[in-house]
Design a protein around this nucleic acid. Structure first.
Lengths: 123, 123
DNA sequence: TTTATGCTCAACCAAACGGTTGAATACAGG
DNA sequence: CCTGTATTCAACCGTTTGGTTGAGCATAAA
C-alpha cells in the first residue's frame, strides 16, 4: 500500500471510475454489483477499486447476508480541503503583498529575487 | 499523459515531493535547482515532477536567462475544491434527510433498501 | 444437500510511474 | 572561443497500477 494518508486520498481520487463511484455513493450506499454495473470492466476490477477507496478511508463496508454494502465516509474530504485551502490562501496572500509592494514603489526596482524557503512544510 | 484535468490534478498531488514543492511555491517562486535542493533525488527527477505539475496546470514556467523560474497557479485548486465540496455536501444532505426520516418514524420499519442511481454524475 | 448469488483471492499482463545515468541544449562570463 | 551553470532529453530499470481470467468462499434459496 502507498504511504501517507494524503497521498492515498489524492491518488484514490485520481481515477475517473473511482471518482464516479464516490459521486454515486454520495447519493446512496450500494453493493459491489450495483456499483459495477455501469462500467465496462469486470466486477473484480470494481472490487479492487473499492479496496483502494477503502484504504484511503473514503468508504467503509458492512456485511448484509452475502452482500457487502459500501458507504461513503465524507470526513476524509476535510484532509484534502484543509491542505488545499492552506496553500491556496498562502499563495493569494503572497500576491496581495507583492501587489502592495509594487503599488508603493513608483520607481522601477524589480531586481530582487526572493529566495525559496527550505522544505519545512508539513505535507 | 493522463486523461481528464481532474485526474491530472489529483494524481499530481498524490506524490509527497510534488505536494511539498507546491507548499514551497506557495511562499515564493523558485528555480529547478532551488526546488531540487532539499530532496534526496536528482535534478532530473525534480524536473520530471515539475512537468507533471505543469501538465496538471498547477505551475507555470517562465524564462530568465538559463533559469526557468517556476510559479504556482492557484486557480486550478478550485477545480478540486468544487468537486470535493459538491459530493461532500450531497452526502451530508443525504444523512440529514435520512435523519429526519428516522426521527419522523416512531415505529421500526428499516427494511427498504434505496437503489443506486445510474452513472450520470459529471466526474 | 445441491445450486445460485455476491464477492474476494491469486496469478498474470501491459502500461504508467518514479527513479537513475549520460548526453544534449541554452545561455553567461572569462 | 571555451568553460561553467541550469535545464531538459533519452534510454533504461524495478515497482505499482488497472485490467484480465479462473478458482474459492460464504450465504441464501431450492
Amino acid at each position: 500500500m502507498a504511504a501517507d494518508p494524503l497521498s492515498r486520498v489524492f491518488s484514490a481520487l485520481a481515477d475517473p471510475i473511482r471518482r464516479d463511484m464516490v459521486a454515486r455513493l454520495a447519493v446512496a450506499d450500494g453493493t459491489v454489483n450495483e456499483l459495477a454495473e455501469p462500467y465496462d470492466v469486470t466486477v473484480q476490477a470494481v472490487s479492487k477499486h473499492l479496496r483502494v477507496l477503502e484504504d484511503a478511508g473514503l468508504v467503509s463496508r458492512s456485511r448484509e447476508a452475502q452482500r457487502r454494502p459500501v458507504h461513503l465516509e465524507a470526513e476524509v474530504f476535510d484532509l484534502m480541503t484543509k491542505w488545499i485551502e492552506r496553500y491556496r490562501r498562502q499563495a493569494e496572500e503572497r500576491y496581495r503583498r507583492l501587489d502592495d509592494l509594487l503599488r508603493s514603489m513608483p520607481e522601477d526596482a524589480a531586481s530582487t529575487t526572493t529566495p525559496l524557503p527550505r522544505t519545512g512544510a508539513q505535507t
